[in-house]
Amino acid sequence: MDLENQKRVLDLSEKHGKENVVVVIGTSEAESAGLTAETVTAGDPTFAGPLAGVSLGLAVYHIFELKDAVDAGVYDEQCGMMEMVLDVDAINSEVKSIRDQYSQFK
């Protein structure tokens, strides 16, 4: 997760309260989805950015996990094609496993 985005997540969680922030990620690989989820929950695993050693424990989901919460037409337009392309199950299970381990707000 790039350093600029880490700072934005940190600033938003301080401004609105950690319990009021949900991070929705849209990365295309299970590994990078997991790393992003880890960064906003347990802290930056690369120890390079503002979230190094900061465990925010935020609620975090991949957009694929939220399919039922989104209008079907909008979801199809925005995610339909990528759903056919990416390994949805691998991404969802990776993010879920990180969330189950480190998220304080589920």
């Binding site: 295309s28 690989e29 094609m81 990528m82 392309v85």
Partner: peptide, 18 residues
Amino acid sequence: GAGDVPLANYKMIAALGA
């Protein structure tokens, strides 16, 4: 961890075609 970029592009073109 950035995957096979051309393959991802081809999958998108194929999915769009499908």
